[in-house]
Design a protein around this nucleic acid. Structure first.
Length: 813
DNA sequence: GATTTTACGTA
DNA sequence: CGTACGTAAAATCT
């Protein structure tokens, strides 16, 4: 059945979808199916009444199998068939006839029909001119069916519709009033920098483009959202100016950045490059739009293109990058300025500027950590990799010789050469050649399909039911092969490795086609830093927060210096105890605060022993090590609402026993379930939670157990993350000249200090780290433990009180 | 050649 | 039915 456009003929907004589905076909009306319901909900969030709009589709009848490709010659939908051309023509006539103020295209097909463009992700959210009916205003966004499939698209779709509503008052296409000046002469550019330095009083936006090895290619500056200038430093990868001339540019840029606060998008990168390559110090990063977006909308994409599409009324420009790089760069700078103005208001509206200021304070320490790097000891590295020495059991120690020995042995037993890194080949060996029972991966949800796996958990299980020696050898090989990746790392000419600490969490940048692009996928980011490969100094294994213990020995402090680590003790457990008001645990944490490990042990001040004693109803000093282990695993599993299957696997017991233990645990600790219920209630209205330091997170997942589990972990995890970062900033700001911060590991900070400063450093670090937290009307602090060692891998626990005798920090000469 | 899947390291 | 993160290699898609 042909589906006609419907709605008031004098409507200001014309909503255009793709093609009718089954329900539409049946009723002869557009958007009446599930996608129609989603559309209604998106419109209502945007403040639009569907009855005020014209609603229709590009294609007027349902394609077989709902496949839009039906209307095209090719699978990429670039060459329309005659039928499709007829429909596009009909749409054109309708737009002319009804003459709405704005046409809103829903989905890729509508975008193509209205503007001739491809790629809804790149061009959604921008007000542009319709090519189908020249002079007509168009804005495209995601199709409701796409939103329904991927809920994370809801936010941009609603923001786009709001923009469409704002633009529906008049048919005028907003004029782009920006003055984007490209390629000024060197003289003009320097005059501009001087003008910024002496005559301009407001912040300036800055953006750099870089070529190979992060050398600055183009420099963009803006002094308002409407005024930007872009200047080329390199041409075809070669300097355009004599060193003396270039120096003049850097000098005046430094002068400008010394007095003008700067606005940047991911300024940590720009500031690091400016300092490393050109010794230009960005003295005041006044505002960072990446950080602003992370604080305002942590769950959403935050590339500059996306933010501009949400916040501004400018045309899409990201596609200009290759052809007109300076224009692109100037637009980057101007739009950064514009986005910041919107974000700044949003920070106040949401009352979360304190979180923004806190994240901004982390920029310099994080940048310093990236540029400084950490030294690799070649001798330890070589030893670990190649040592021919043997251990007590006569096995070679070196990773490489051990690996090749194992490979030979495994191939001999299996009687074929197997690539053990290939899950496919390994499955073939295990389940076909050896005929072992298939093992399945644990599912995220009971509804997910079962999948065969050959991971280490599967191998472990198989090795218990089958005595083929190859199984344990494969396990050892896999472990060692992984370890090798962390030990066999390339270092910089200075013998260092570097990592990029990302304040805004989940990876923002990834290399593709030699360009740095923003990743528009998963955005969770609970406020903890992530660590990834530094694009500026790409040496080492990248992420330094997941280096295995066994590989840490290669990171050694210079002679006369030591590593000190300070880690929060049982940090998440402490937070949970106070939140759920577990009085017994709270008392235990208070009794053990500031006490030595020995004291804690002698007085049974141990979470897991307490759990076991509650569980088995026995006195705390009668708890056996096995019972303590049960207590530990159970607490862990329950804190994050794991299922009995996991517990059964971890403790090596049956499902029935596991269920019994879990029930018993909850009977003895009813507060946990009550708190979980409370979290669910808080989620119900807005899906917003706050951690103990006032960091806000709005969850986007649909109402499900997965959402709950994610939410239960949010408060303790992000509180501890923020706490550690707060401490790290304090250590950097107050003592950064003497204490070299080396690593950030979520709940621990590692520093390198001269040996004679060890006791002083421990004292001031402790002072920086014991920050009070509040919950349920209680004040509390999370205690810290220290370790010291000559390398990251050889740290020994030490007692604070053994090192620090006085109460006042005294700096030795 | 680009993208997705599988696996695995840390807190 | 722990969550959070990043990277490498294989498998798969186009």
């Amino acid at each position: 059945m042909l589906v006609k456009t419907e709605g008031p003929p004098n409507a200001r907004i014309f909503l255009v979808g793709e093609a009718p589905g089954a329900d539409e076909n049946l009723l002869g009306r557009p958007f009446v199916s599930h996608a129609g319901k989603v559309l209604d909900s998106l419109l209502s969030y945007a403040g639009i009444n569907r009855l005020d709009c014209l609603v229709g589709n590009v294609a007027r009848e349902q394609p077989p199998g709902n496949k839009i490709e039906f209307f095209f010659e090719d699978s990429k939908c670039t060459k329309p068939k005659t039928l499709m051309l007829k429909y596009v023509n009909m749409l054109q006539q309708e737009i002319i006839q009804y003459n709405p103020n704005i046409v809103v295209g829903l989905g890729a097909t509508a975008l193509w029909a209205l503007t001739g463009m491809r790629g809804i992700q790149s061009f959604r959210g921008y007000v542009q001119e319709c090519t189908l009916v020249p002079g007509k205003k168009v804005l495209c966004t995601y199709h409701p069916a796409a939103v329904s499939r991927d809920w994370s698209l809801q936010f941009p779709a609603v923001m786009d519709l709001r923009k469409a509503l704002r633009n529906s008052d008049t048919p005028d296409i907003p004029k782009d009033t920006r003055a984007l000046r490209c390629n000024p002469s060197k003289r003009e550019f320097i005059q501009y920098l001087q003008w910024l330095t002496f005559d301009w009083k407001d912040p300036i936006a800055l953006d750099i483009e870089t070529k190979a090895n992060c050398h600055i290619d183009i420099l963009g500056l803006a002094h308002s959202p409407n005024n930007a200038i872009s200047f080329e430093i390199l041409s075809g990868g070669r300097p355009k100016y004599e060193p003396r001339e270039e120096l003049e540019i850097w000098y005046w840029l430094s002068r400008a950045l010394e007095v003008r606060p700067s606005i940047m998008h991911n300024g940590l990168f720009d500031a690091c490059v400016l300092w490393l390559r050109n010794r230009v110090l960005t003295k005041t990063i006044f505002a960072d739009t990446l950080i602003g977006a992370h604080v305002c909308w942590p769950e959403h994409p935050r590339s500059l293109g996306f933010l501009s599409s949400i916040c501004l009324n400018v045309p899409a420009w990201k596609h200009q990058q290759t052809l007109t790089p300076t224009l692109y760069n100037a637009a980057d700078a101007a739009n950064t300025y514009g986005v910041w103005e919107v974000l700044s208001e949003e920070l106040d509206r949401q009352k979360i500027r304190h979180t923004f200021d806190f994240e901004m304070s982390q920029v310099f320490p994080a940048g310093m950590l990236q540029l400084q790097g950490i030294s690799v000891d070649k001798e330890s590295q070589n030893d670990l990799l190649n040592s021919p020495k043997q251990d007590d059991l006569g096995r070679v120690i070196g990773i490489r010789p051990r690996l090749s020995l194992l490979t030979n042995e495994i191939n001999r037993i299996l009687n074929k050469n197997v690539n053990l890194n290939s899950p496919k080949q390994l499955q073939q060996v295990l389940y076909t050649d050896l005929g072992l029972p298939e093992q399945y991966r644990r599912r995220a949800s009971i509804n997910d399909p079962r999948k065969v796996t050959a991971d280490s958990e599967a191998l472990q299980k198989l090795s218990k039911i089958n005595d083929n020696p190859a199984l344990t050898m494969i396990l050892e090989w896999k472990k060692l092969d992984k370890l090798q990746q962390f030990v066999d790392v390339t270092t910089s000419p200075e013998g260092k490795v570097h990592t990029s600490y990302n304040i805004t969490g989940a990876t923002m940048q990834r290399e593709a086609k030699g360009l740095v692009v923003d990743d528009e996928n998963d955005y969770r980011s609970f406020g903890r830093w992530s660590s990834s490969k530094s694009i500026i100094l790409p040496f080492g294994s990248g992420n330094l927060q997941n280096v295995p213990r066994a590989a840490r020995k290669i990171y050694r402090s210079p002679t006369g210096y030591s590593f000190i680590s300070a880690d929060y003790i049982q940090a998440e457990a402490v937070v949970v105890a106070y939140i759920i008001n577990d009085l017994q645990l709270i008392r235990m944490f208070e009794d053990s605060f500031g006490k030595s490990r020995q004291y804690r042990k002698e007085n049974n001040l141990d979470v897991h022993r307490i759990t076991a004693s509650q569980l088995f109803g026995i006195p705390i000093d009668k708890v056996t090590p096995d019972q303590r282990q049960v207590g530990k695993t159970l607490r862990h599993a329950n804190n994050y609402s794991a299922g009995p299957g996991v517990l059964a696997a971890k403790l090596g017991i049956g499902m029935k026993e596991a269920k019994y233990l879990m029930n018993l645990y909850h009977q003895r600790n009813p507060m946990l379930r009550i708190w979980h219920q409370k979290v669910q209630n808080e989620l119900r209205s807005t899906k917003i939670l706050y951690n103990l330091l006032g960091r806000k997170h709005q969850f986007t997942e649909r109402w499900s157990d997965e959402l709950f589990r994610s939410a239960y972990s949010y408060i303790p995890q992000s509180t501890v993350g923020d706490l550690l970062n707060m401490s790290l900033v304090k250590i950097y700001n107050n003592y950064g000249d003497r204490i070299d911060i080396a690593l950030q590991l979520h709940d621990a900070v590692y520093v390198i200090v001269p040996d004679h400063l060890i006791s002083w450093a421990m004292q001031v670090m402790r002072e920086c780290m014991l920050h009070p937290l509040q919950v349920n009307g209680m004040d509390f602090k999370i205690d810290i433990d220290f370790s010291i060692g000559p390398s990251w891998g050889e740290m020994e626990e030490v007692e604070y009180t053994d090192y620090v005798k006085s109460n006042l920090p005294v700096l030795p000469n």
